[in-house]
Design a protein around this nucleic acid. Sequence first.
RNA 1: CGGGGAGUAGCUCAGGUGGCCAGAGCGCCAGAAUCGGGAUCUGGAGGUCGCGGGUUCAAGUCCCGCCUCCCCGACCA
Length: 575
Amino acid sequence: MGQLYVPTLKETPSDVETKSHEYLLRGGFIRKVAAGVYTYLPLGRRVLLKVENIVREEMDRIGAQEILMPIIQPAELWKRSGRWDDYGPEMMKLKDRHGRDFTLGPTHEEIVTELVKDEVKSYRQLPLVVYQIANKYRDEIRPRFGLLRAREFIMKDAYSFHSSWESLDEVYELFKKAYSKIMERLGVKYTIVEAESGAIGGSVSHEFVIPARIGETNVLYCDRCGYQASDEKAEYRGEYPATDEEEKNLEKVPTPGIRTIEEVSNFLGVPPSKIVKSLLYKGRDGYVMALIRGDLELNEAKLKAYVKDQSLRLATPEEVLEDFGVPIGFIGPIGVDVRKVADHSVRYLKNFVVGGMEEDTHYVNANQPRDFRVDEWCDLRTVVEGDPCPVCGTPLKATKGIELGHIFKLGTKYSEAMGAYFMDEEGRLRPFIMGCYGWGVSRTVAAVVEQFHDEDGMIWPLTIAPYRVVVVVVNVGDEEQRTMGEKIYRALLERGEEVVLDDREVSPGFKFKDADLIGFPVRVNVGKSLKDGFVELKKRYSRDVVKVSVRNGLSEFFEALERIKMEYDPKEMLR
RNA sequence: CGGGGAGUAGCUCAGGUGGCCAGAGCGCCAGAAUCGGGAUCUGGAGGUCGCGGGUUCAAGUCCCGCCUCCCCGACCA
C-alpha cells in the first residue's frame, strides 16, 4: 500500500455537501479539476471499471452491441433534430478554426440515428440494439454533490431500432430486466418508477432509482398497489366535483399592489382554492397560458410534455410587461388572445378570481366558458404526498432518490426528424421506431457510497470494491508480523484475490482509519495475536472479529475468508 | 442566470481598523523513541496572501475591474 497512489485526507474539504463526495475525496478516489469535472485516481478508476463491466456484461447478455461514438458532434445534426435550441444552454458548445459550430455530446441520439440511417435499410436487419460507455458533457446550471451531478460524466447509453412497436416493447422489457440485474449485482436497494421523458422525448419511460436523502428525484409511491412514479410524471386522477353554485356577474375590482395568490386571498377574503393562477410561458411557438387552481402547484414537466415543447419557460416580468402591458401578478385569461391550457382543477370552479390584465386590478366572479375559453384541458397538477394514488386511490407517500438508469420508448421522433427510414415487408418506407436507455456509470459510484457508508467511511459491495481484501500488518517493527502479512498477501494474490498489503510504517490506528475510510470489504489484521498463532478477519460493516489459526498453514484462513465473502452484504447495515 | 458567501502553505483555517504579521494545526522531509484506532519529541523545507490595475512613504489588509470556487432556486444519467 506504500506503493499505491491513494492520497487519503484526514480533514474534510470545506466544499463538500454529501457523504459520497466527502469520502470519495478523502479516500483518495477522485480529485476535482473544475466545477463538476473530476480526475479518477487509481481506486476510483478501479471502481468505475467494475461498474462499467457489470453494465457491459448485462448489455451484452441482452444482445446489445458495443460501439463508440465521438464526443465532438457537429451542430448540423442537432439543428436537424431541432435540439440545438431545445437542449440549448445545457450543451458545451465550441467552434473549430473555420468557425463551424460543434458541441461536446450531452447524448447521442442524433449521431446514432444518422449512423443507422445510412447502414440499415431493411426490416430484415431489425431490431438493432447498440450501446456505448463514454463521457458525456452537460453544462449543468449547477454542478453539485461531486460525482452525482457533474458536467463531465460517464454514461452508458443504448439505442434500439425497430420495425414495429411490439419489437420495441420486447426490447424495452429486456432493458428493464437488465437494469434490475445491474442493481442486484451492485447489491443496492432500488426502485423502478414511472417517469417523464423530458428533453429526450417519447412516450413511455421508467427510472431506476436508489433511495437517498440527498437524491434529486422525488418519488411518489403507493403502499397498497405498488404504483411508483416520479413527481414529474405522477398523475392526478382525483375528482373535481361540479357545484350547483350560480354564476354571478363578472366584476373588475381594484387590488393595488396585490400580486401573489396569498395577498389576493387575504385582500379579497377569498380562499386560494377560489382563485385561478395564470402563468405565462414562452416557447417555440410563442406564448402559452397555463391555468391552475390557486392552492395547487403547477408541474412544469407535465406542461412541457403536454405542449411538446421542452424549450418552454416562464416568461420574464419584462417580457410580460412589454408584450401584454401588464405587470406579472395581474395577468389573467380574460380578453387575452393566447393558447390557454388549463388543469382539470379549473373545470368546475365557479365565481373565481383571476388577474385583471390591468395593473392593480383583478376580476371576481369569473366563470368559464362564459368569460374566457380554455383551449385544452389536461393534468398539470403537481402530485404531493397524501394525494390519491391514480391506480387505487390510496394516499401516496413520497421519498427522494438518485436516478441511475432511465429508459425511454422514443417512437419515431428522431427517425422522422433525421429522415431515417427502412423498407418494410410491403416495400414501403417507414421511420425507425426507437428506444433509448441510459445508465449513469460514474454517478453509480457515488450513489453506492451514498447508500453504503458509516461515520468512518465507505462500505463497498464485493462486486465493485476497488480491492476486496486489505491485509494490515499492525506492527511493522515486528519481524514475525511482517513476514506473515507478506505471506498471506502473496498467497491471496496467487489465488486471484484482489488484495492490498498495508505494511506502511505508521501507527496501527492510522492504518485502521484508512482501511475503514477506503471501505475494503474484508480486513485481515496481522497483529499481536499472531504470537498465539492467529490472525483476525473482519467485515467492514461489522464489529465482529473472526480469529483463525495460521499455525498449520493457511487453509483454515482461506476457508474463513471464503465464508466471510459468502455472507458479506452491506445491506445488513441499512436497517 | 438571479440571490448569498469564499479565495492566505499540499489540507483545514487564523490574521483583516494599512507598518516587527507571513502565521497555527495537520501533512511533507530528516532524526529519535514507539507500535491494536488518524500517538509523542527534535530539527527542516514549503506561500506571486486568486489575477490585473489604482491609492499610499508603505497594501493579505483600502478602492476599481476581472477570474475561480461554494451554497440557495429552475435542469438531468
